[in-house]
Design a protein around this nucleic acid. Structure first.
Lengths: 189, 189, 189, 189
DNA sequence: AATGAATGAGCGTTCATTCAT
DNA sequence: AATGAATGAACGCTCATTCAT
């Protein structure tokens, strides 16, 4: 396959790059495939060669550009007695690999596109699981009850995953580290 | 003016009702004005009689169907010593009067429509202010830790305002009461 | 009939005034009746009360605001031996009473509206007749032949009637007096 | 590219042919793009493929279908002493190549579309220049009377360029040859 | 694999016209 | 006579998608 002039990668990659940028900026509905092609520097027909339906662009982005790291690896997520540190460490190793653009796409389009929503649910489940595990390890005595720990994990997951979106939508940034500290205190850490 | 058409209210109201439903369900971009008209039981032209541009539907919804209650009224928001109760009470008297449908519209369209985003920022500011005040009253001794109190107020505001959306996006409901309890504990309530 | 606030005359007159302005500026097709109403300061319905069809506005303007003076009156149009003077005098007493706006309407819409075209033909016939008569009187010997005199009258009529339009369309003004002089010379005056 | 459709030329040409006919007959405003497509035998969308905006049809027509011949070529425009012949010859070699339909479009739409008006001004300037030059060559002795010569050239240009339109608007044809003769006489030819 | 002309359904919007009051 | 809400046909234009090459 001949390399194309303007772009860095092959045509398919450039098409996805363009779609990612445009979907993030303007939304899926408001982005015409012709604009994707133009931005990618490829002829319009080629977009449909690789992605027979427009929705396939979105599906491919979500499938190929949001990776959830497997938590199975031996990651000593938290040292006992330091729940705040455990959560902060989790924040730093967010098991979601996705560009900020991909996150905006994920949140925006999840509302109306089931396949995106499913992916977002899976991501959320993964992070929530990690947070819960980290807190359980950090607080071996399971002080307080399970319900409180669940609420803490859920709150932290929400703040962690949605921080950019919350900041954008509310005009107010909530710092995950501060929330980690808050939560740790409430669990008696 | 023909008072009352086929439906419950007058035409303009029915058009807004229809737009609210459809924008919430499918998004603004994906909703054709013709569908709004059909759902409202009015001819297409009448939609444009009242709302010369499609965007005016969204603007009117946001302006007329999201009210921020004035916090000035004598609301004994919290009794000293009971921050959890204060927040819970705030949750029950959310100063945002908007249907769940309006909230979904607000969050979804804020991303791409400035006027909606401005409104959402204002709402957030109002709720944040209330939460902060409630905590200050409930914890008069907590003066020393302004940063922690701010983080607590911001976290609670986020969970409170976005609960339905978070539930929808994550597949997981976070209970504001549980978060209120969590926060209260962490502030030494 | 109550006098209306903004305008000078009654509603019907103000509607015609507005139509005259707008048709002249933008053309009949490109002028919406709603704009006519707005400019006239009357409700939309009233335009259709007086002029049941949009075209009636144009017809009324042409019928009521272009008057052809009757040449029957004893006007000593030219003194024998001075054809240039005779034509110049005719130019000064153009038997067409119509505002510059009305003339633009007449020429522009004659192309596609038969009733306007008929009126314009009548106007042309009247002016042509006057020009011919003036030349015949000024040149009693009928020097040269009739065909030449006819060409002279037609040329002068065209320049006289269409001068503003020619100027607008060509960017070049042709002075009727200079043409009168030219023609007089060619007829041996 | 599917070479040749149903009609005579390729699709773009057929679209312009149709637009030329319809704009000339009914005016630009009164001609729907759908009618252009139907007359051209192409689907509606294809018109917008080639001409993204309706106005581009008019612009393309004016740019591609009105040519002003360069006057630079060695055209012995007039032999000295025969101004009538010189003008008659100019009439026969009008430096404006445009169908009668294009001329009607030019005059009608110049009123409201600046690009068309600009083109018309350029055409007028070119013809006026030719007429002036022809008269200067044919009447080398007429140096003293520049103003009269200018009026003669302008009058002839107007009659020459606008003859069809004047005929249509007035119901009266003015023969350019007769006017050429008239003018020649008045300049003492 | 690559291309861009071709297609047609559908969209937002305009607007002359009607009509109940 | 006066009003403006109501109506629907039509318009300019967009766009996902097809397909011959």
């Amino acid at each position: 396959m001949r390399r194309r002039g303007r772009g860095r990668g092959d045509a398919r990659t450039r098409i996805l790059d363009a779609a990612e940028e445009l979907f993030a900026a303007d939304g899926y509905e408001a982005t015409a495939t012709a604009r994707v092609a133009r931005r990618a520097g490829v002829p319009k027909g080629l977009v449909f060669h690789y992605f027979p339906q427009k929705i396939d662009l979105l599906v491919a982005l979500v499938e190929e550009r949001t990776h959830i790291e497997e938590p199975g690896s031996p990651v000593p997520e938290g040292s006992p007695g330091d729940p705040a540190g455990a959560l902060a460490r989790l924040a730093r190793r967010l098991p979601l690999r996705a560009s900020p653009a991909m996150r905006r796409i994920l949140f925006r389009e999840a509302d109306t596109h089931r396949s995106v929503r499913d992916r977002l649910h899976a991501l959320n489940r993964a992070v929530l699981h990690r947070a819960r595990t980290a807190l359980e390890i950090a607080l071996p005595g399971a002080r307080g009850d399970a319900a409180r720990l669940e609420a803490a994990a859920a709150t932290f997951t929400a703040v962690l995953l949605y921080q950019e979106n919350l900041a954008h939508l509310t005009g107010h940034h909530v710092d995950p580290d501060a929330v980690a500290d808050l939560i740790a205190r409430s669990l008696g850490g």
